[in-house]
Amino acid sequence: MSELKNKIKLLIINSLDLEDMTIADIEDDQPLFIDGLGLDSIDALELGLAIKKEFNVKIDANSEQTKAHFASVDALAEFIESNRS
């Protein structure tokens, strides 16, 4: 699963143009939004599209659970693992 987490981190960095960050700068359990990595709702949309394209998983933007799936790299990895088609 750590390979998947590294792919997610790289996807975050590349899709959101976080050029000054490296994989090592993002903790697996670090919150991605607000206090953690500091991402916002626009970043969430871009990241959601990138994840859908890269991992071929369906993300329901209107689901209450989507917020939980985007809480951290750990949560995203778990979501992707359980929803790969």
Rank of each mutant, 00 (worst) to 15 (best):
Q65R: 06
L10E: 12
S2D: 15
K52V: 10
S85T: 12
A44V: 08
E46M: 11
L32I: 07
G38E: 13
A61H: 07
D29P: 02
F33Q: 00
I80A: 04
I13N: 00
S15L: 07
K53D: 13
N6I: 10
F70R: 03
F70S: 00
H69C: 05
E54I: 03
D20L: 04
L32V: 06
A50T: 04
L18G: 07
A44K: 06
P31Q: 15
N6W: 06
E3Q: 15
L4W: 06
I59P: 02
M1L: 10
L10F: 01
L37H: 12
S2T: 14
F79I: 10
K67P: 01
L10W: 00
D25E: 15
N62E: 15
E54D: 13
S2M: 15
I12Q: 02
E81H: 07
M21D: 00
L39H: 11
S63L: 08
H69A: 10
I42P: 03
N6F: 07
D74H: 00
F55D: 00
A24P: 01
S15G: 08
N6C: 14
L10M: 06
M1G: 14
K53C: 05
A75I: 05
A24F: 11
K52E: 04
L39M: 14
N83I: 02
K5N: 08
G48H: 05
V57I: 05
S2N: 15
A71T: 08
E81F: 10
F55S: 01
Q65P: 04
E81L: 15
F79G: 08
A50N: 06
N14Q: 14
A44E: 06
S72K: 05
S72C: 10
D74A: 05
K9I: 04
L37I: 13
A68S: 15
Q30T: 07
G38Y: 14
I59V: 14
S15N: 09
A50D: 05
D60S: 11
V73P: 01
R84V: 11
S15A: 12
A24I: 12
I34V: 13
K7D: 14
T66D: 02
R84L: 09
F33V: 01
T22A: 07
N56R: 11
K67R: 11
E27G: 12
D29G: 03
L47D: 09
I13P: 01
A75S: 13
L4V: 11
S2Q: 15
E27M: 07
N62V: 08
D28G: 11
A24H: 12
I51Y: 02
E78H: 11
I80L: 09
V73D: 04
P31I: 12
D35K: 11
T66R: 02
K67M: 13
N14P: 01
A61V: 14
K67V: 14
A75W: 03
L47S: 06
D43N: 14
D60A: 10
D43P: 05
F79Q: 08
I13S: 03
K7C: 08
S72I: 05
L49R: 11
G48L: 10
T22E: 09
I8K: 01
K52P: 01
A24K: 13
I8Q: 03
I12T: 01
L18F: 10
I26C: 02
D43W: 02
E64D: 15
I8D: 01
L37D: 06
H69I: 02
I34P: 00
H69P: 02
